[in-house]
Design a protein around this nucleic acid. Structure first.
Lengths: 225, 225, 225, 225
DNA sequence: CATGAATGAGTGTTCATTCAT
DNA sequence: GATGAATGAACACTCATTCAT
């Protein structure tokens, strides 16, 4: 997706993500449903291959094997398909491992499992994660939307941290919410650096170090049972 | 800079950052030097205001008060001006505080100062930092270039950590290099979230928490002198 | 097509004939076919009127009555339309007189007929022939392509000459291949001088003199039957 | 000089050769004379290398080692320098061999010598001859100017032929003027094909065949002295 | 519903020529 | 005379989107 390419310039005009916010309803007929699915699949392929900017609608419809005009039967803009792809990917990311967050008693083990799970999932969806980063850097609305969604995740983490603090397992002199934000950020950024930027760190070592840092940063001590 | 805007479409074709790597030499005459400087200044204004993608050459030359054609007397492409702006900003970022890295005896105080310095600098150049993020997400070559430059910084941090470990001030059970990468990443991301994404965290609280996390993560204990 | 004209500057950038070598496939729908045909016809008009260099895409699409952008539905560049026009003209040039090469017994009459045929055809396509000359002088690839095509024609002539030599009708002390090249060249150049450069020679006199020269140069003697 | 190059587009606007017809007077100072000479020399290099269309004024002044603006101290346009180069080359072409046309008694030997002389001269100035062809195909005024100059040459040849006819050395049933035009054209085209188009014919064989054809076409018989 | 041809706004880029220094 | 920075007209080309069939 280097801008170097002279052949695939960037699109002009755009409905924008703000407008694409409210997706139109799904088609009713099975055939329509199938075509739409093919389109989303094709869009994902093209987006992941070319990036959001360089992806041309023609490439997407071509990949899907439908005519250019038919695109608009299902979506209003490139942004809208992108959102559809995003929805699909989010669905995929959650499904496989429902027990992504093992409820073990050992908090350290929990953190380690969570970190490993995060990295593994990130790796599986690396192309798409890079894509998200790109779109967020391009579109204000999308960026804001993403920030908000992240907050929920951070809140969950903050709650966990507070619980550990209350139980005396974690040090209580730290702001749980900020700590959650920053530590989550640390893991997210490490994953980004590794799987999108191309750092060559060993994944096991990453898990170990991230876990260590996280645990020590929170001064988590395993209760000597 | 939302893609929503229907009025300022994005340009097409691009020389790419790989090609823009070797900047042409500076003009020799004072007049040329002055014009070039005006151009770089104008480019910075437009880039920071519109983002890299939405910035049009016409806007830049317009802002600089020169004709469109004159742009090419100084730069070959938007990428090349961007690099010139980057050079200028990097220069600016270093100058003000030479004592950016206070050599105090107290490592905690050092870390705190460093974190505060980083955040303050980031805030001052927030628009530009967001710009960097955008360009990196768009262009492979630029992304790689940036990753490499970051490595030097991380190496420096890793060395500091190792020294602390050798002095027994920091825990020695952690991989210094990975720790440096991840903790630096944590701070960078926090700054990005605060100043680019628009989180509303209090800056003093950020400095405090980041420092605490960093210190505890490395199990730094102040030698009771 | 004098360069004097200050009003119609020549276009910049060009895909080149090397790239235009492999024409894209024809459109499938009747409408597409019709539009393409209109475009080729318009291109021919504009090319013959303005020359290749001064022909602007806008003029061509304007003449064809379609929008500028639609041009690219059918061709990638000016070179590619030119090649399409060339194909069309070549088609036209062959069709009318299938018996272009009369199989008469009298070799002199044959040569006369061939010369007359050539001149008449050249006159009919004079504008286009001048165009060919221009394009050949401008583009290396096209020039080479043309040279190769000419070779086949010369080979045919050389074979005829060799047959006449074997039958004792033509003198056998001349290099048949070179003679064919040079004599063909003579006729071609005469036609160019007359119909493109604007010499005012009488065409019958041309036919007569060319035939005479050709016949005598080869020392062709009619077998006294 | 293929149009394929994306880097050297064709120039826009042009004074045209009609306007460039009357060259301005030479500079008076020795320094001015020297600069002008350098400019003409540089122009020749660039024209022969890049062709008339792709030659940029900047390249010419660069090659000459003078500033872009100074060009206009000596010439009004690209056409005018071209004409200056043409003058220089014409001067060169005549000088070296004044006895280019040996006045031997043997007409065949004369023709052979003339043909060889022509080919050799053409070869020496091949790049420039190709250039002439290009400019002629581009500019109507220049083409006409060239046609007229050629006429003088043909007239001379026609006169020679008539003399041979009167002496009974050449057949008198052919139109001397047309024959001169066509046979001169034959030689010229052969030279063009060989040295510009890149045919690989052996030069001695060319001289031989051209001479034979020319001699036989005119039915020249050596008077058995 | 599908098709694919048609649209057209929009900007980067070139280089001959001018002119203030 | 020389310089070289500044000019500005001009056009090819792209691709999201529309719409007649």
């Amino acid at each position: 997706m280097s801008m170097t390419s002279d052949v695939s310039p960037r699109p002009r005009r755009s409905a924008g993500f703000a407008e694409a916010a409210s997706p139109r309803e799904l088609p009713t007929t099975p055939r329509g449903l199938r075509t739409r699915a093919r389109l989303v699949e094709a869009a994902r392929v093209v987006f992941e291959r070319d990036g959001f900017l360089d992806a041309r609608l023609v490439d997407i419809t071509g990949e899907a094997g439908i005519s250019a005009g038919s695109f608009y039967t299902y979506f209003d803009s490139k942004e809208e398909v992108f959102l559809a792809v995003l929805t699909e990917v989010e669905h995929e990311m959650l499904h496989p491992d429902v027990r992504n967050v093992p409820q073990g008693d050992d908090p350290i083990e929990s953190i380690r499992a969570s970190n490993r799970g995060y990295l593994e999932s990130y790796e599986r969806f690396a192309r798409f994660m890079g894509l998200l980063e790109q779109v967020a850097s391009i579109d204000d609305d999308f960026r804001e939307r993403r920030r908000k969604r992240g907050e929920a995740f951070v809140q969950r983490n903050a709650r966990s941290i507070r619980q550990l603090q209350e139980k005396g397992i974690a040090g209580s002199d730290v702001d749980a919410f900020l700590a959650a934000s920053f530590l989550s950020g640390m893991v997210a950024r490490a994953a980004y650096a590794r799987f999108v930027l191309g750092e060559t760190w060993d994944i096991d070592a990453m898990v170990e170090t991230l876990t260590q840092l996280w645990v020590d940063a929170l001064k988590i001590s395993v209760p000597s049972s």
